[in-house]
Design a protein around this nucleic acid. Structure first.
Lengths: 189, 189
DNA sequence: CGCGACGTTGATTTGCCTCAACGATTGTGG
DNA sequence: CCACAATCGTTGAGGCAAATCAACGTCGCG
């Protein structure tokens, strides 16, 4: 049950038994049904989530009511509105489950405790943020330089098999076209 | 001469005299002429730069030879290819001076020393990365949801007065349109 | 001074959008 | 568990935003 998350920690830090146990003791397991909102824009993001099963989406709803997806979080991804979480102020984004999912929650306060007791986790979360930073830079370049067709292809590579698990309209909201146009793109191949 | 950078540190960490002196001792001042390349794609990014005068650009050149600008760095901004810097592997981006500029350099090795001697700087650079992360998320949303005209407006607000200091083609490469179309946009107002 | 990079403007083309109509699939209440 | 509604995906027609192409004026620099 804890394997996925321990492996995830191990990607960036080495923990002894006590450190691992302490970290796990702060995490709360949660089963979330499809369509559950884990964060709503305007609320404060009080938890960071690690996904062990299913898939979440982090997205923005504009004034016209259209959704734009920043990122999907399938298994082994972390989900959070980072601006809201670290400032503990109202969120601009939403987090929703796209499938029946299983997550581990870590509250803001518990993360602080974790940093204090096991400083290695500062490093761990810094690297996570850094990796996200790098991914987002690439995504900006993609959106500036590539056609919808190329972005669709990149989406498939970044999230293997995910396109068959989620609605096409979410793919559209991620690559930045209308659902109608995704339909046209699929026909072309 | 060191005021700008000390103020920049002070935004996120509080330093005593010794800590400030030590940090400054690792920084090397450099005068860079317009058009100087501080980093070329393929080279390893060995330094992080703090700009005290002028303006740099961080950009990607695609297979067709077109430039796409991730970010401008005028006074008080930090410039680096973060993926290359932290992995010490070849860069995918370029950094170039758009004006005669003045920067402070900090090498990878010296940053490591700094982290060791003054751990507060781990926090400082983590917050910088976090802020960049947040900005990039917003930019992705903007590119997905807004027209060229709106993105032009946002560019002006993010970088006040900068549009009069740099070539229009660089504005175009930042907002993701052709220089020709920026010309059309300007005429409209 | 003259060349090359830059910006402007107009004509034409294209990528993607909007609107609308229609099956298919999903979900829900009786 | 079925019936009906709602949501989703597909397809086509027409429209608009931005690209491309090309010609020309201007500026900065060697």
């Amino acid at each position: 049950m804890f394997n996925r998350i321990l492996n995830n920690f191990a990607r960036h830090v080495t923990l002894d038994q006590d450190e691992a146990d302490y970290a796990l003791s702060l995490l709360k397991y949660k089963n979330v049904k499809k369509h559950t909102m884990l964060l709503r824009n305007g609320e404060t993001c009080r938890k960071i989530y690690f996904v062990t099963k299913g898939c979440l989406r982090l997205y923005y709803t504009d004034k016209e009511g259209k959704d734009h997806i920043i990122s999907f979080m399938p298994e082994n991804w972390w989900a959070v509105d980072i601006a809201s979480f670290y400032s503990q102020k109202p969120a601009t984004y939403n987090i929703e489950a796209l499938e029946d999912s299983e997550v581990f929650e870590l509250t803001y306060q518990d993360q602080e405790k974790l940093y204090e007791k096991v400083p290695k986790f500062e490093r761990f979360f810094r690297i996570l943020t850094q990796n996200g930073f790098i991914l987002y830079q690439r995504r900006i370049i993609q959106n500036l330089s590539q056609t919808a067709e190329e972005r669709y292809e990149k989406f498939r590579r970044r999230y293997p098999k995910l396109e068959h698990r989620i609605a096409q309209k979410h793919v559209a909201a991620y690559i930045g076209v209308t659902p109608v146009f995704v339909s046209v793109l699929r026909r072309r191949r």
